[in-house]
């Protein structure tokens, strides 16, 4: 600690860049060879409901064609009212979520006032942009960011591309290898003013559909008791959805349909 440090701003990410660059991931050192050997996260989704936004992710991480982990967590609370869900290279993505959560808390403590939700999304987009060299080697970080906007009194969500492009979605989005299937499922049933319980059912149904069609997405695993992580951001803050509710939503979703096109 010194009285006059070389960095005087309010950003933790910039503080590390200036004073402790060795603590940040060295994105230039990663190359194509790393792509298939490190775990990748797969399907995550977010959708608005009346009074908030729901964020969900499956638990499977893959490395090439192998299972890297069956119970990885891809949805993180980044502060009391926002969440980040990651798909893409798991290592850099999880690290980015960690830095973002320190970043938001750091700013709040230094400035004495929390960032606006727009400011948080913008900061994340800058961090993704820093990762571009690694993304060009296949180690992309493509998160969803969602939160409750305390000024507008509603949930909001953003998707990003590898260049840090930031796009606000007005209804829902899903990303990752099974994102297409999840999005299609949500599209069938999403409507404005959905309540939280219906949003949870729809999220679980979408992840189940993604797991059915995409081998890199894990669904609900009743045998091993592994459930997707689902978080709800509302005016009350970020809350985890109960496993029991996820389980009943899952049972409900599978009972309402056939056996997935099998001839048996």
């Amino acid at each position: 600690m010194s009285w006059r440090g070389s960095y005087q701003g309010s950003s933790f990410f910039e503080l590390l860049q200036v004073e402790q660059p060795q603590l940040l991931p060295n994105v230039l050192a990663w190359d194509q060879a790393a792509k298939d050997s490190i775990p990748h996260g797969t399907t995550v989704l977010a959708m608005l409901y009346e009074g908030g936004v729901l964020v969900a992710g499956d638990r499977l991480a893959t490395a090439g064609h192998s299972v890297a982990s069956r119970d990885v967590v891809k949805v993180f609370a980044t502060d009391s009212h926002s969440c980040m869900a990651i798909s893409g290279a798991a290592g850099p993505s999880i690290e980015m979520a960690r830095i973002l959560s320190v970043e938001l808390e750091h700013y709040e403590k230094i400035e004495g006032q929390a960032l606006e939700l727009d400011g948080k999304a913008n900061k994340l987009s800058q961090m993704i942009r820093q990762n571009l060299p690694a993304a060009m080697q296949g180690l992309a970080v493509v998160p969803l960011f969602a939160g409750y906007d305390l000024r507008r009194r509603s949930g909001r969500l953003w998707k990003f591309d590898i260049t840090g492009g930031r796009y606000e979605e007005a209804e829902f989005d899903a990303t990752g290898s099974g994102g297409l299937y999840a999005r299609e499922t949500i599209k069938q049933a999403w409507r404005p003013g959905l309540d939280q319980a219906s949003a949870l059912s729809l999220a679980v149904a979408a992840l189940t559909a993604a797991a059915d069609e995409d081998r890199a997405t894990g669904g609900v695993d009743l045998e091993r008791r592994i459930f997707p992580v689902v978080k709800a951001c509302s005016g009350d803050g970020v809350q985890d959805c109960e496993e029991a509710d996820i389980e009943s939503a899952y049972r409900d979703a599978v009972s309402r349909r056939g056996n997935g096109g099998s001839s048996q």
Binding site: M1, S2, W3, G5, Y7, F12, L15, L16, E19, Q20, L23, R98, I99, V102, E105, H106, K109, I110
Partner: peptide
Amino acid sequence: DQLRKIGVRFADTKGYS
């Protein structure tokens, strides 16, 4: 106030690493 800020930087860096 400057001391408070360098304390936050010190603590957050330590907690992160």
